[in-house]
Design a protein around this nucleic acid. Sequence first.
DNA 1: GCAAAGATCGGCT
DNA 2: GCCGATCTTTGCA
Length: 203
Amino acid sequence: MPRLGREFYGRYTPSVAKDLLGCTLVRVDRGRRLSGIIVETEAYRGSGDPASHAYPGRTARNAVMFGEPGHAYLYFIYGFHHCLNVTTEGHGTPGAVLLRAVEPSEGADEMVRNRGVKGGAHIADGPGRLTQALGIDRRLNGEDMVASETLFIEEGTSPRRIGRSSRVGIKVATERRWRFFVAGSRFVSQGRPSTPTEPITKP
DNA sequence: GCAAAGATCGGCT
DNA sequence: GCCGATCTTTGCA
């Protein structure tokens, strides 16, 4: 499948987050292709979104969010985990979509090894698990996912039923339901409510 | 300089 | 369900 282009990412962030469901995240690690179908995302914007890293303004860490859409924004959290985002919007408006879970596709055996846990469950259902499974860390911060040979996203088929909820792990702006997931998928990180899709309204 | 909080995970009760 | 691990970034003195 062709990969997503700049124009896909350069849109209203919650729309990008929703449209990424069903697309394939690809990581080429030491010559091997690892991939998974995106089943859960969250949208983060800038001013007006207190839950976003970009809310207080541009800093050294969040600079990528203020740049060109389609780049990887990676940060280290809780002393243990990396989180992978793709930047959105552009033209001075910060935005990023947090990739929270994928359904393992190519190279699932290596993902299990990367995770280093027993059993086949919980391979990439959570932002920290996802990056560990695919061998992604901060060295890829700023990577241009439109042109990169090692980290990019390919087109896919939009899932039939999409659920949405408040974002996970935040304490502010919980009224915004900017977490999107494939309804009924057992690969999402938590909760499988059968919430129907609603139109996305701009603030 | 220093203190505090953080878009989490895994193990244990 | 609760708790501890571990470290980066940021804000304020």
